[in-house]
Design a protein around this nucleic acid. Structure first.
Lengths: 347, 347
DNA sequence: ATGAAAGCGCTAACAA
DNA sequence: TTGTTAGCGCTTTCAT
């Protein structure tokens, strides 16, 4: 069991001062080649590595990013988390995770805890009350970015897909497919993603001379989505929607299950279903869900850029509202407009 | 933007010494009610919270647990990660994430990085070369536990499900269902989970007088599993297996897709399919996969207990090998033995 | 280019 | 119970 090795020990072995050792491990400090060699040799011999925490204390930079995430049940998030963590690692940062799920009411506590770690920045993903928390961070002088949420709150950087445009695309596609009774299953109403998707969807529907034929709420949860699907589709054929836009894939898959396996209807012959996110299961042949792709790679890249920008140049960094356009991935869960062909599922 | 508040500032406002403030925020220190009140009042007024990093420096305890995870593509891991993070949070620890995926070769680097943060413990999940890393941690005097891997290496605590027993159960069920040509699709051969599942499976098969009819490798990856399924099932009916055990659900779902949607065979009429893990999609009606459940809750609980045990009492804590029994969840992807009824999917 | 010295914010003896 | 003191391991002036 190797004991803890300090820079002082290395200094003594190398026959230099402790500060010399520090300089060798500080990029861009001034050390002679000779000293550096001596120090590196001694360090290697002792297995020395700088203590990140001690460095953080004096420099004020912990190189830790706090990530607050509500739940990983929606498979868009594990993917985003993986990419985000990787991207941050490449920049020399690491991610401290905080699950906001359990701590239902006490998200405030979570925030305090996160701040206690002197994190250099915070990413909020799928967190209820994001705006309160974000404000709290700002007060503490910690850069924040909201991932996959757009807050009305000014002064906070947010990165999301262009949910309004996405909603529009879905409506236009459904309209082009000559659907007559188009329904909507909403997500949690407090989420900006939900609101924007619905707004874009309704706007384009209206332009096409239609209105939402039926509306229910699934709250982004499987069970609620199932219940909504039952209420919506377990009715007389004439009162049944012939298409439904579900606010995210996670719910859309559940809705498809109810439609096909509980009610015995066919997709898309009896009902067209469209989701949002393009999570991996949406591409599985058992579903082949037509959906709007959220480009996780781009969203993560923008998040990292914005965050580092705020960290490195807090004075000049302006809050941004990034909305990334996402393509409609046409598979087979929705009837095709004349002349369309389903696309191949790319990776 | 609130400035950083130190214990000294609180002390001055409260008219006490700095150490008095420290004591108030140190559970089990001795402070008079009167001092405590004064301090708490001043702290509240200033919005003071102890700096975890500074505390870590002097106490030697960072209350950070390093979690190294290979990939989140297998949906067993997001679930485990969420539960683990929650459980650790409840104990006052937080999780620093390290994705080992990207850094293909340089897992060693990841390990050094993680150790630089002076983590109090490390959890290794789905990481190649786990044993090397684990050894490295031990050298550094940092408690480790391997999650969902059993290493032959003595002296390292591991928590996994009882994969051998699980493999046996699958074989016994398939045998009872009077299958004649039972195949196996393996995971990554370096994983103990894979090896144990296969060993148990083969042993029980042999006891039933059968042998593995066909064998291929999917490496725990979707694409490889698909390819394996094609090689295995795209053959003359007489040479085709009538049942297949796939080493995890993630691959089993892909295998089902190939069997049903590419080859047009029926499950379970033509082929019975059984997986391992019981990830959420296994229970979706479109698959209804019969599988062995890995009890994530128990696995996480054991992991946390073992880890804290090693952290709190390093002297007496013995390395353990925990194997948690997992039930066979009987759904409809495998033909039922006479007299069996499919179970309801519980939550 | 290098060493000495002063802390970063906190905990933990040690006295009082 | 309280205050004083000495660090934890490091970065960063400030001299030299």
């Amino acid at each position: 069991m190797a004991e803890k090795v300090t820079s002082l020990q290395v200094a003594q072995l190398a026959g230099v001062s402790q500060s010399a050792v520090s300089r060798v491990f500080t990029p861009g400090a001034s050390v002679s080649k000779k000293t550096e060699d001596k120090v590196r040799k001694a360090a290697a011999e002792l297995g020395y590595r700088p203590n990140v925490l001690a460095r953080a204390m004096v420099s004020g930079k912990s190189r830790i990013i706090g990530l607050v995430v509500g739940y990983l049940e929606n498979y868009f998030y594990p993917e985003a988390l993986e990419k985000l963590s990787n991207a941050l690692q490449e920049q020399g940062y690491h991610v401290l995770i905080f699950m906001a799920s359990r701590s239902a009411g006490n998200i405030d506590d979570v925030m305090e805890e996160i701040l206690d770690y002197q994190v250099d920045g915070v990413v909020l993903a799928s967190v209820p009350m994001s705006s309160d928390i974000a404000t709290r961070c700002q007060q503490a002088g910690v850069p924040v970015v909201l991932f996959n949420r757009t807050q009305d709150l000014d002064g906070i950087t947010t990165v999301a897909s262009d949910n309004y445009a996405g909603g529009r695309k879905v409506a236009e596609f459904l309209l082009a497919g000559e659907h007559q009774r188009i329904a909507y299953v909403a997500g949690w109403q407090g989420a900006s993603t939900q609101r924007d998707r619905e707004a874009g969807f309704r706007a384009a529907l209206a332009e096409g001379g239609q209105n939402v034929f039926a509306h229910d709420v699934g709250d982004f949860h499987t069970e609620n989505a199932r219940a909504a699907a039952r209420r919506m589709f377990d009715v007389a054929p004439g009162k049944r929607p012939d298409a439904v836009f579900v606010a995210n894939d996670h719910m859309a898959l559940a809705v498809m299950d109810v439609i096909r396996f509980e009610l015995g209807l066919r997709v898309p012959e009896d009902v067209s279903v469209i989701g949002y996110d393009d999570v991996p299961p949406a591409g599985w042949p058992a579903y082949n869900l037509t959906t709007i792709r959220q480009r996780a790679n781009l969203m993560v890249a923008e998040t990292v850029t914005a965050l580092l920008d705020h960290i490195d140049t807090p004075a000049t960094a302006k809050p941004r509202k990034v909305a990334i356009d996402g393509p409609l991935i046409v598979r087979t869960s929705a009837r095709l407009p004349k002349g369309w062909k389903p696309q191949r599922t790319e990776t």
